[in-house]
Design a protein around this nucleic acid. Structure first.
Lengths: 159, 159
DNA sequence: TAAATTCCGACTGCTTTTCTCGGGTATGGC
DNA sequence: GCCATACCCGAGAAAAGCAGTCGGAATTTA
């Protein structure tokens, strides 16, 4: 899980789309103006979002983009995963963590980064576009509802 | 809270220091060799760690670096904050979030990033150097032992 | 004094990120 | 059929940050 401005731009744009499209396509130019992001850059982001199945496009005049799913079905983590290339969190041998054992001193931190990635993914998976639009990102207690449930299924390596 | 390889190097080096120093100074050259990090680069990182009060230095032959505090008193979050410049998670007006209200459409995501930063900081604050050295980063359940105790002091905004 | 070690600042090459440009292609309205 | 609108695409420029280098200075031990 990578955190860069690219992912943030994508989320900002998706929030804009979710809050302005009431079933109608929204042109990228409008989003670009409201969010102050260059149109060409947005096009690149939305190309990835489309390939990731998060938005649908309508070409021609009156066209634009639509959410592929309802805003409460679109998780923030999906958006970030769609636009950001996965990165290698450790400098271990590519592929399996076999190379780690060769130099165990270096990879004591391996589990730490992996678990941190899990934590980030867990949080961003618990927030939907609808949550952000309605400004319900977190409860007042600082604890996210529904986030306490321990992971049942093995979490995908966050990378 | 920024997450880059610089912070990871710093944590790797601090883990190395914590696990090899038994009260004696450890020379950076030794850490550099074990962790395969260039000496000069390590020097830059440790300069920041020293300014951050995380390590003490001993000059001259037989010198090196010592943890300023016990390894179970040194939190991973402190290390990363010491070496990584804070980044602005949002492109709002610097300082207060006043500028946000001018263009509220752009800053719907403000709370989201802030809370994400809190989540990351919360996790990294719950892990100490001692945890990593003893490979107890997380339990098999995915829940960290000893991490349940909520921080008493107010959490710094992660930025 | 000589050697080991931290300390310091500037600079460089490299990679990644961010952004721009110049075109294409589909589509609806006249 | 034209044309404006809007998505689509790839190449590359500009900027930023990372990782490393270099040369030296200060401090301490032996």
């Amino acid at each position: 899980m990578k955190l860069s401005t690219k992912g943030r731009y994508a989320v900002m744009a998706m929030v804009d789309l979710a809050s302005t499209s009431h079933g109608n396509p929204v042109a990228l130019a409008d989003i670009a103006e409201r969010q102050e992001i260059s149109l060409s850059y947005l096009e690149q982001l939305f190309a990835k979002l489309r390939r990731g199945g998060l938005v649908r496009s309508v070409r021609g005049p009156g066209g634009g983009y639509l959410l592929a799913h309802a805003s409460d079905q679109t998780r923030i983590s999906d958006i970030i995963l769609a636009v950001d290339e996965p990165i290698r969190a450790t400098r271990c041998a590519p592929g399996s963590p076999v190379g780690c054992r060769a130099n165990k001193a270096r990879c004591l931190t391996h589990d730490l980064w992996e678990e941190l990635g899990n934590q980030i993914h867990l949080y961003l998976s618990s927030v939907t576009l609808a949550n952000v639009v309605s400004r319900r990102v977190l409860g007042t207690s600082g604890v996210l509802e529904g986030a306490e449930a321990p992971l049942a299924e093995p979490m995908v390596a966050a990378q």
